[in-house]
Design a protein around this nucleic acid. Structure first.
Lengths: 137, 137
DNA sequence: CAGCATCCCTCCGGATACTG
DNA sequence: CAGTATCCGGAGGGATGCTG
């Protein structure tokens, strides 16, 4: 299946206007990047770590209703993409500190715009939603 | 300060405020908004419609490997949140045109920062990813 | 042309229990 | 303290067929 090639081509066409003519996309970056920061807890943890480094247990207390499984998994995903650095101190008992990398800080700077917009326009979105649902009947 | 710290605290405070008993995290504005633009096809369709209005079939040809089901559903979701306007022309056969609303354009302006970042730093993210996977074994 | 309906399957994410 | 391991329900999303 040549879906990837086709998709790549459409991506190029679609983003030509905003990316400029020199845009040489090696892959489909938007989905690839956005999918990994749009999880249920990702933006929240990124916001926390952008404030200051935190240890595992601190994050757990800071976000009480995240399951331990999802906290581990989300942190690993963020680390895998290079946004988060993981420091292990072989003390007894061991402690692990998480912090944003330069790449993470750079990315969060872009994400901030969207978070800011979301906070300011949340009411408008919710209004549109209820209006749409009402019109459905 | 530069407003950045304030912004981050705001987000954490929003979370803390509703982290009480019986709190529904679906009310978190950031997640509530971001979740609905972070689907598999959402950013792609938004980018397309930000270019110019399109009809249903045009979008289908523009993004060949989206299933018809997902195209319909994604457009409805975007319309529900007030980002997309749906114009029906009762011609024969009927035609439907989709376009961005003012709210949609406003939101896409914020989203663009993230998309641009993704395009520019996609290689760095992929490098980090392969490095992480290699270190695992 | 622009959808809706149906089947089906993957995988996200919560709950719970165990370990170095 | 900072994780792994396992089970499982439900939402997300693809393929196909039918309609006004």
């Amino acid at each position: 299946m040549d879906g990837r090639i086709v998709e790549l081509k459409t991506k190029l066409e679609i983003y030509r206007a905003m990316a400029g003519p020199g845009a040489n996309l090696a892959d489909c970056p938007i989905r690839d990047v956005i999918c990994n920061i749009s999880g249920k807890w990702n933006s929240l943890l990124l916001a926390a770590l952008a404030e200051k480094p935190y240890r595992f247990g601190e994050l757990r207390r800071l976000v009480p209703d995240i399951s331990q499984r999802m906290l581990t998994q989300t942190l690993r995903d963020l680390q895998r993409d290079g946004y988060v650095h993981r420091d292990v101190f072989p003390t007894k008992p061991p402690s692990v500190e998480y912090s944003l990398t330069d790449l993470g800080r750079s990315m969060f700077e872009a994400l901030r715009h969207l978070m800011q917009w979301a906070e300011r326009n949340h009411a408008a979105v919710r209004d549109a939603r209820t209006r749409f649902d009402a019109a459905a009947f």
